[in-house]
């Protein structure tokens, strides 16, 4: 069996032992599959296992934490999509919100149940604390984001504070859980957590830019969401261009009908001409360098670091 099959088997076992009805199990399985089609198979579990492996932990040591992280991230995705009214094509957006919230809660509880068979009590307690802390942080970050939607502009610092709580926090947690279960010492756990944070910020910058360039289907700009490209444009534009951006933003918030192909073209022109893609690339590259510096300073063999280095690219 390859790693994906082992993770799948562990999730199936968890669902079988959960006592959940067949209907619920089937829906959770189909939602897991829907997520994989978009994000690649078991990305969260794999990140957790990669980190566990890098610290010398075996598959058996990291597996339950990996499954817990995968389920936790799925629950977080579902709740995020409901709150943001985003990703309408996904199955949890096609059922009434009450059902989606109910099943997201169920998946979240399953995530904690996955941990319950970890034999090392100290590891169990530490991993539980990681999940509790990221849950609180992510809710806090999401709430700040709601508040920022109605603001005219936010600072770069405010932007990074939020994505560190949300995206960065989730990848940092996956790495931290992997390191804890791998039996790493505290310093190494901290280093891998910091590495995970950089990785999450890099991913979010990439995601923000892709969304901003994909105005036909994504709704960040329409919601007034302060993603990095938008924060950048609000910061650097002045005079006529700033007025144009403000006007486009107001039209977009009124709905896609008001924000037609002409307006999309105008925004795309601002993105390209004003250096938005260059800025996102620069910040992304800076985080990449920091991630590499962290890996350089980690006292584990190059062979064990290899997969983590490949992740950064």
């Amino acid at each position: 069996m390859n790693i994906d099959q082992i993770i799948e088997k562990e999730i199936k076992l968890l669902l079988t032992e959960s006592g959940l009805s067949k209907d619920v199990v089937n829906i959770i399985n189909s939602w897991l599959n829907a997520n994989y089609r978009i994000k690649g198979k078991y990305g969260w579990a794999q990140l957790t296992l990669m980190t566990c492996d890098s610290t010398g932990g075996g598959l058996e040591a990291g597996l339950r934490g990996a499954v817990a992280m995968e389920l936790y991230a799925l629950a977080a995705d579902i709740l995020d999509d409901i709150q943001d009214q985003d990703n309408n094509d996904l199955p949890w957006r096609k059922v009434p919100p009450a059902q989606a919230i109910n099943l997201a809660t169920c998946i979240l509880v399953l995530s904690y149940k996955a941990l319950s068979t970890i034999a090392n009590r100290r590891h169990l307690e530490d991993v539980n604390n990681v999940l509790n802390q990221i849950g609180l942080q992510a809710c806090d970050g999401q709430f700040q984001e709601f508040l920022n939607d109605s603001k005219e502009r936010i600072s770069f610092e405010e932007y990074f504070e939020i994505i560190k709580k949300k995206s960065g926090g989730l990848t940092a947690s996956a790495c931290k859980i992997g390191a804890i279960l791998g039996g790493a010492e505290e310093t190494l756990v901290d280093q891998l957590e910091r590495f995970g944070m950089k990785l999450g910020v890099m991913s979010q910058i990439k995601n923000d830019l892709a969304d901003f360039l994909n105005l036909e289907t994504k709704s960040d700009f329409i919601k007034g969401r302060k993603t990095l490209p938008f924060v950048y444009l609000l910061h650097v534009l002045n005079g006529i261009n700033a007025e144009e951006l403000k006007c486009l933003s107001s039209l977009a918030i009124q709905g896609l009908y008001e924000f037609g192909s002409k307006e999309r073209g105008q925004l795309k022109e601002l993105v390209v001409n004003e250096g938005t893609i260059h800025f996102c690339s620069v910040i992304h590259e800076m985080y990449k360098q920091r991630a590499m510096e962290i890996l350089d300073g980690i006292p584990i063999s190059e062979k064990r670091k290899e997969k983590l280095i490949q992740l950064v690219g």
Binding site: G43, L170, G200, H278, S281, E285
Partner: peptide
């Protein structure tokens, strides 16, 4: 140095620059 490096790729279109961004595993 990073800024210089990114602008030295300026012959690439913006979309190409965006496509060069890692990580390849997509979480968000």
């Amino acid at each position: 140095d990073v800024i210089t490096k990114v602008f030295s790729k300026e012959e690439l279109s913006g979309n190409s620059l965006a496509a060069r961004m890692s990580p390849t595993l997509y979480w968000f």
